[in-house]
Amino acid sequence: MSNAVSRRPSPVLGAQPSALTDILKAVLRLPLAVLDLMIDWQQRSEERASMAQMSQHQRRDIGLTEEDLSEMASRLRWSRHI
């Protein structure tokens, strides 16, 4: 009898080892993706707060009106548009 180990698919959910590796990598990347998203939300919130404190002269220099700032301030933190 041979001592060779046969190469069979992983018994876990019948998935191949490469598929399990891909799933594991995706699961391990999830916390980093969530952290990146939260950092983006915080940066947008800070940018909107700093724009709300701009003087009229500063707003004119960058081409923003009072209505633009009011709209930006009312957006939710996860809104992509600054």
Rank of each mutant, 00 (worst) to 15 (best):
S2H: 01
A4R: 04
A4E: 08
V5S: 08
V5T: 12
V5K: 04
V5Y: 01
S6D: 10
P9H: 15
P9N: 11
S10G: 04
P11I: 00
P11T: 13
V12M: 08
V12W: 14
L13Q: 10
G14T: 12
G14S: 09
A15D: 02
A15T: 14
Q16T: 14
Q16N: 03
P17V: 15
P17T: 14
S18R: 08
A19K: 14
A19M: 13
L20D: 02
L20W: 11
D22Y: 04
D22F: 07
D22T: 10
D22C: 01
D22M: 08
I23T: 08
I23V: 09
L24V: 07
K25H: 12
K25N: 07
K25D: 00
A26P: 03
A26Y: 00
V27S: 04
L28W: 02
L28R: 10
R29F: 06
R29C: 02
L30D: 06
L30Y: 12
P31E: 05
P31K: 00
L32W: 07
L32S: 13
L32N: 11
A33G: 11
V34Q: 05
V34Y: 06
V34P: 00
L35D: 02
L35G: 02
L35N: 07
D36F: 10
D36N: 02
D36W: 03
L37W: 08
L37Y: 05
M38I: 12
I39L: 12
W41Y: 12
Q42F: 12
Q42T: 07
Q42W: 05
Q42H: 05
R44I: 05
R44K: 07
R44T: 09
S45A: 10
S45N: 12
S45C: 08
S45F: 10
S45E: 09
E46F: 07
E46Y: 02
E46Q: 14
E47Q: 15
E47G: 12
E47R: 13
R48M: 04
R48L: 01
R48V: 04
A49W: 08
S50F: 08
M51F: 10
M51P: 01
S55Q: 03
S55P: 03
S55I: 00
Q58L: 06
Q58H: 09
Q58E: 14
R60S: 15
D61G: 13
D61C: 15
D61K: 13
D61Y: 09
I62Q: 03
G63Y: 07
G63A: 03
L64V: 04
L64N: 06
L64W: 03
L64K: 06
T65V: 03
T65Q: 03
T65D: 06
E67R: 14
L69E: 10
L69F: 02
E71H: 11
E71S: 07
E71Q: 01
E71F: 09
A73P: 00
A73D: 05
S74V: 00
S74L: 05
S74C: 05
R75A: 01
L76V: 15
R77M: 05
R77I: 15
W78I: 06
W78L: 08
R80F: 09
R80P: 09
R80Q: 11
H81C: 03
I82F: 09
I82Q: 02
